[in-house]
């Protein structure tokens, strides 16, 4: 029998961030590995810690090969993110499921033609509440952004009463907290 791995549309890079205040932000960001098949994705996924087991201040990022998980990257700077903010108790109930669904949406290219607008996804483990976001490349591509948001919300199994927001990185970089404005909501 002829056995081959199942190729993904894109090669993806997993990054790990661990907050060490004695180092610069960039030094704290490490490339873990890259993969481009379904089988290699699962080999990696089963080898690493679940997000809920990471310590506060840590992030995982999964981005298309060639895109760094930071606003400043050329692929990201005009883009933004669909942000899921979780309540503290959701770390034990939904965080890992949400993150896995996010990863599957990315590697499976589940946003049809608009998948090209996806840059990657980030999960932030924080004491005050964890966050998951899908980053897209162009905040002005309204059709793409809205489509991605709707499909994403569906895959997370969020009820229609839950509203999620999309913020442009340019706005996030200059504002903070309650001043952060949603460019779109679904």
């Amino acid at each position: 029998e002829h056995i081959t791995k199942h190729p993904l549309q894109n090669r993806w890079a997993l990054w790990f961030f661990k907050n060490d205040k004695s180092k610069t932000w960039q030094d704290n960001l490490q490339l873990v590995t890259k993969f481009d098949t379904v089988e290699d994705f699962w080999a990696l996924y089963s080898h690493i810690q679940l997000a809920s087991k990471l310590t506060s201040g840590c992030d995982y990022s999964l981005f298309k090969d060639g895109i760094e998980p930071m606003w400043e990257d050329n692929w990201n700077k005009c883009g933004g993110r669909w942000l899921i903010t979780l309540a503290k108790q959701q770390r034990h109930t939904e965080l890992d499921r949400f993150w896995l669904e996010t990863l599957l949406c990315l590697i499976g290219e589940m946003f049809s033609d608009y998948s090209d607008d996806v840059c990657g996804a980030v999960i932030n483990i924080r004491t005050k509440g964890d966050k998951i976001a899908i980053w897209t490349r162009e905040a002005e591509n309204q059709d793409a952004v809205i489509h991605i948001g709707r499909i994403y919300k569906e895959h997370l199994g969020l009820s229609s009463k839950v509203v999620i927001g999309y913020q442009a990185h340019a706005d996030t970089a200059t504002k903070s907290g309650s001043l952060m404005k949603n460019k779109f909501v679904v």
Partner: peptide
């Protein structure tokens, strides 16, 4: 064409032994 995979298809591989 584009390599698009659905959720169920991807999950089917989660616990498969790795192939060479």
């Amino acid at each position: 064409g584009k390599k698009q995979y659905g959720r169920e298809f991807l999950l089917d591989f989660q616990f498969m032994p790795a192939c060479v």
